[in-house]
Design a binder for these strands. Structure first.
Lengths: 210, 210, 210, 210
DNA sequence: AATGAATGAGGTTTCATTCAT
DNA sequence: GATGAATGAAACCTCATTCAT
């Protein structure tokens, strides 16, 4: 079936690359549409137009709308993990979180929108597939955070006592996710206020002492 | 039929009362449907059936689906304020929040569902009317909390220094709302863990000292 | 919920009657469309137009296209049984079958079209629901025929020996159904030819002797 | 002979042979798909995959889906004629028909599926091209049978009186085609029952006497 | 006041067919 | 010759909303 005389490896590799690029194009468009219209209000036609292709073509790359949502959750996990990694390295947790807050408030498309994050979590309540993906994603994310808390300072961690790790991760994560809601519900909240608040209460979470 | 010749005043008052009751019936049904199916997936037929009335009748009391959503936001404000009042009176903030968390996790219909809360907040990003209602509601709620923090202990408050109030309200509210997401994304989180965490970190928020 | 002062029985009976009438209207239109275009080629829009209603309304009375097909199979069974009953009473089997053949050939809409019958049977090969309905329907029909063969002449039957019944029913049914195909594939076949052929070979099927 | 630079005659002959082989490959795949899914439900992509080629390539050999169906009817004619020839030679008509019945019931892919046969006949009701092909095919088939009936026993025929031929062909063909429907609608019918029935009623069709 | 039948727009999805490579 | 990505039309179905009764 392959053209005789040419190695099959190269064309198929090229095709796979193109397919991957198309998937990416669709996901970017979908994320944008979901942010603007919401999961259910965003139509496939909408996504297709944003991606600059016909609606039917999307089904060559995704099984359906739900499949797109699932893929977006995975994207989100990767982004979130990258963000966490950035927080570690910067060792300026307050500044890092404040920046994320600011991006949420500005609806910065370079990170996952706060609204999308909320809607996605709500949807996990109803769609079992989304629930599974969300829970798995969340578990990995928590493990990342926990490992950072538990590692010794010499290894770039915080050296938090083991029996304290889960508790502090819980508080930190709640605080961050709560700020996602604040970014939406309290639009006149300034980054400075957030920084002030975090400066005051984060330190007690990050000390090595019990 | 009503007695002929009677003035219209009394019947109309009665009618108004009935209208209010009908609205309430619809809202209760709608809230239930929204929790189960989400805003967009919940159909008017669904709501009508849950309310035990015909679909057409709903349009006598609400202009449309959006109108119902708006009304539900108002309901939520009232409920949230009532919850805050309960927290004050009990003076056991940790226990109170933990209880709310538990209800969220169990999807207890006696309080606003966590999923509905999230979806509603997300929707505020898109619908200006909902945004306005949400922001107004949030403002009142924050004012309630702030007043409680600011009031002296003698008056049933916490006696927090005025310049500290906004900061602490921000942290507390973020924490609580973050727990709404935890209730969904981390289903194996126990109330005990939440209580432990809160017991450790809430006190510093509630002291009268700077 | 019902209008006070009026008995609920009458309106609901009326509603049920109307619903039944609508179902009938849809089934007639569907059968017509299926005959003209075939099962899959006939669109819901097509059926709706033929029935003189909007496409969406059909879904109030039928769960989907498959549901309509299933209902049509049941209709067919009833018609077929009625036809068999006619054959008994007339005691002119040859003339009766010849008439059916003529109606098949003329695509007489008053009986099930031969083409629809064939397509439906073919579909039973693929759709389990249709298979179940078809097999059940066929069983009942065969039992009707068998009972006629087995009953004594005094009771309006043929008095065929019991051990011969199944065999003869098989031959008769094959012959009749084969004529459905002849009506389509051999359009210049005349009723007279059919009558001649049946006159010659049916008698041996219908005698009481072995 | 084949010196380089020769005219295009031989290569084009080769090309034609290849084209014929490709058409055959497609037809085999199509028939298989039609049996499994039906005419309309079988997709071109499906056929292409079964044939082990790309969807686009099919259009080099066939004008479209309808063109394939037409070609399949012709195939069927050839197969059916071959089957008839087999029946003659075996001179065991009962056994031959019973075997065909068994293959129909088992959906044996080596002969035309009963379901495909039915669907195809039904389609003839609607598509004039298919009708023409079917009728022509049927005519040839009947002529084959008639010639067998009419030929003298010495010539390997049955020696049936000329004025009886058409009648008996009609009955025989109806019976056989009716068994195609029985194979589908009466799945618990056994080959033995069919053989018994045929043994009893076929002889009268095959005698040389009037 | 109340019903629920009816509509029409719009949603997701499939698929025959074309065409650049 | 061969591929398979791409399109566009059309399919089935759902639902907010209206309106005669």
């Amino acid at each position: 079936m392959s053209t005789p005389g040419t190695p099959t490896a190269k064309p198929s590799a090229k095709a796979a690359a193109r397919a991957q690029a198309q998937r990416e194009r669709i996901l970017v468009a979908a994320q944008q549409c979901f942010v603007v219209h919401g999961f259910h209000a965003a139509s496939m036609a909408n996504i297709a137009e944003t991606a600059g292709m016909s609606a039917g073509l999307i089904y060559r790359y995704f099984k359906g709308k739900n499949d797109i949502i699932l893929a977006i959750i995975e994207r989100q996990l990767e982004e979130a993990r990258a963000d966490v990694a950035k927080l570690h390295s910067s060792s300026d947790l307050v500044g890092g979180i404040a920046e994320v807050f600011q991006q949420w408030q500005a609806n910065d498309p370079s990170i996952t929108s706060a609204a999308l994050f909320l809607e996605l979590t709500a949807e996990a309540t109803r769609d079992p597939e989304i629930a599974a993906a969300t829970h798995a994603s969340d578990k990995v994310f928590r493990a990342d955070l926990a490992s950072w808390f538990a590692r010794s300072a010499a290894e770039g961690g915080l050296g938090v006592p083991k029996e304290q790790v889960a508790t502090r991760v819980l508080i930190l994560q709640s605080l961050i996710e709560g700020l996602a809601m604040r970014a939406i519900s309290q639009p006149d909240l300034t980054v400075e206020q957030v920084k002030d608040a975090l400066s005051q209460f984060l330190p007690s979470l990050l000390t090595a002492e019990a």
